[in-house]
Every structure is written in structure tokens, then in C-alpha cells.
Amino acid sequence: MDIEPKTRTVIPRYQQIAIEVAARIANGEYAEGEKIYARSSLASQYGVSPETARRSICILSDLGIVSSEKGSGIIIRSQKKAADYIQQNSKLETIDTIKENLLKSVSRQKKEMDYLNECMNDLIEASVHFRSMNPFMPFEIRITKDCAYLNKTVTEIQFWQHTGATVIAVSRKDLVMKSPGPYVALTEGDTIYFIAQDDTADRVKGFLYPNR
């Protein structure tokens, strides 16, 4: 399921006006007990309808920041409550921003994972095509001290019977032994070149290094 970042919630205009007025009160632009504009003046100042202005004042009045009585205008009641209201909205905006950034990050990671999967699929397809064009392209594996069959011959460990792979060369120090035969021993430091029937080296790796 796709996860797309949602657009941040738009704050209604009446709430924006309430926040702006509260900010002016909290900043001391209006003093407690001061009488400021009436609703109609507020509507005119912010270019909104009287109903929008009324709703703004209702918010501030319900919070005890101002009082509003018909014919008396708007009176400032509490600078502290105005500051508390601004702080509360600031926290909500911070949470909203964090959520938005988180969703954007998830969306970016999903796109990167989709791109990575596309690249992996292209690589696998190209590898299969290349090997189909070169069916005798050998695999190679390094013999280390952790090999389960160190110093044993290919015949002794029944290499072909267990892996379905055929050893076609062994590189030992500066010597490369082509078609080494069934009696070559697996010596530490050797590099074994082989052709696998199922076009994978996993079975050989699992056989020689079962504890990995």
C-alpha cells in the first residue's frame, strides 16, 4: 500500500484570527482591561465576514482571554491565558510538522526501495541472460582453512555427486591446473573453478563450508 504524505491541515480563518489577536495580547500590545474594536471593526480589519469575526471572538471569550458584550466591544481579560493559547497552538504545529516530515521520509524511502528492487531485477535478468549466452562460464571458490574437506581429493568427498558441479581447473600459487582430474586434493589457498548444472554456486559453497 502506498503511503503518501498528506497535506497539512489548514487552520480555519476564524481560528487564525483568534491566534493573531491572542498573540498581540500576549505580546503586550493590548493591556488587560483595555477595550478594543467591536466585532464589525474586527471583520473589517481582517477582511472577513461578521460571522467569521464572531467565531474568532467566541474562541477567545470561551478561553477567558477576552470578554465580549453587546454594545461594549471586546475587552482584554487575561494576558497569561492568551500566552497559554499561543503556546498550545505552537505545540500542535510542531507535532503536525513532525508528522508531515515523517510521512515524507517514509515516502522517500519507499521510492528508494522501489528503485532498488527495479535495479535488482534488472541485474538478475541481465545475469541470467549473460549466463544463457555463456553457458560454460565457470564459477570460482577459494579454499580456506575453514573448508570441511581440506586436503581431501575430489573423489574422496564425492564432489560431483553432492553438488552436481564439475571441477575444470585449480589455481594453486602460480600454477593453474586445467582439467585436474578426480584425484586433485583441496589445499588451503587453492582457487577452484567449476561449472554447475543449475548455474549457481550456492550448492558448492554449502557443501564445502556447511557451518557458514
Rank of each mutant, 00 (worst) to 15 (best):
F207N: 11
I17N: 01
I25G: 00
V204R: 07
N121T: 15
S72N: 08
A26V: 02
G181N: 03
E4F: 11
S67D: 15
K152Y: 03
M177S: 09
H129K: 15
Y193H: 10
N151R: 10
M133Y: 06
I75D: 04
C119P: 01
R54N: 06
I3E: 11
S61P: 04
P210N: 02
N101H: 07
H129D: 15
K70D: 02
I95H: 12
L175P: 03
K99N: 12
A148V: 06
Y183K: 13
I75W: 00
A18L: 04
E140V: 11
I76M: 03
M137N: 14
G206F: 03
Q161N: 13
L123C: 10
P210Y: 00
E29T: 13
T52L: 04
V170M: 08
I98M: 08
C119G: 06
Q16C: 06
Q45V: 10
M1N: 13
C58V: 15
Q158R: 08
S90R: 11
Y209C: 08
V106D: 02
I124H: 14
A26E: 00
H162C: 11
P135V: 08
E69S: 10
P135H: 02
S171P: 05
Y183W: 08
A169I: 01
F136L: 15
K104T: 04
K6C: 05
E112S: 07
I19R: 12
V204I: 11
K178H: 12
K35C: 09
F130A: 07
L186Y: 04
A165K: 03
I11R: 06
I65Q: 00
L103C: 09
G181V: 00
Q109M: 09
D202N: 14
E93Q: 06
E4C: 07
K104I: 05
L102Y: 12
A201N: 13
R131K: 01
E118F: 03
D96A: 14
K99I: 13
L103H: 09
T153E: 04
Y85S: 03
F159W: 00
D199P: 04
I25E: 00
E29A: 08
H129Y: 13
P12K: 09
V184D: 06
V66R: 01
G73V: 01
D202S: 15
E118Q: 11
K70W: 03
I75C: 10
K111E: 11
I195V: 14
W160P: 07
W160L: 15
I36Y: 02
Y115S: 14
Q16F: 04
D84I: 10
E118S: 10
I74M: 06
V66T: 08
A165W: 01
R8M: 10
